[in-house]
Amino acid sequence: MGLKSYLSGLFKGFYSLLVGLRVTNSYFFHPSRIVTQQYPENRKTLKMFERFKGEVILVHNENNEHRCTGCGICEMNCPNGSIEIISKMETGEDGKKRKAIDKHIYHLSMCTFCGLCVKSCPSKALAFGNEFEHAVFDRAKLDKVLNKEGSVLMKGVE
């Protein structure tokens, strides 16, 4: 290798380093181009997208009514057994006995958020919630009962 090619290699290499430094320096002098979010300080303003799959919820309206009839299709479709439905027999206003939901148990620790339960629900009772801070000290806290205390089936849902 001649002296000339050695020197040109040296300068070319040095120049390539300077080109790289130009990029990093431009960010150093323009802090407004930095896009980092300050979590958890921004918790109040942090809003997830509406379709974000944080957890499965049973939608209740303001009168504490839900749409779950206890048919068990979500339990059947779940690939990991994260949904358990305990049903009971209830007598309706017309005197007929019909199946109703006692407990809709959801094991968040086993859920993989595949979305099959929400998609397959025939009465559109289930939905995805946006809550994502699920860290707890006790694993038992991740087994949730989705139907609220004293909630009843919405009128007109079969």
Partner: peptide, 27 residues
């Protein structure tokens, strides 16, 4: 990932396909 999150609901694992189509329409 923001584009994915808005349309599919997931950031890394999407589960957006199903046999015969897609789980949701695009946002």
């Amino acid at each position: 990932l923001d584009i994915f999150e808005e349309t599919t609901g997931g950031r890394l694992l999407y589960s957006y396909n199903c046999p015969g189509g897609l789980m949701n329409d695009i946002h």
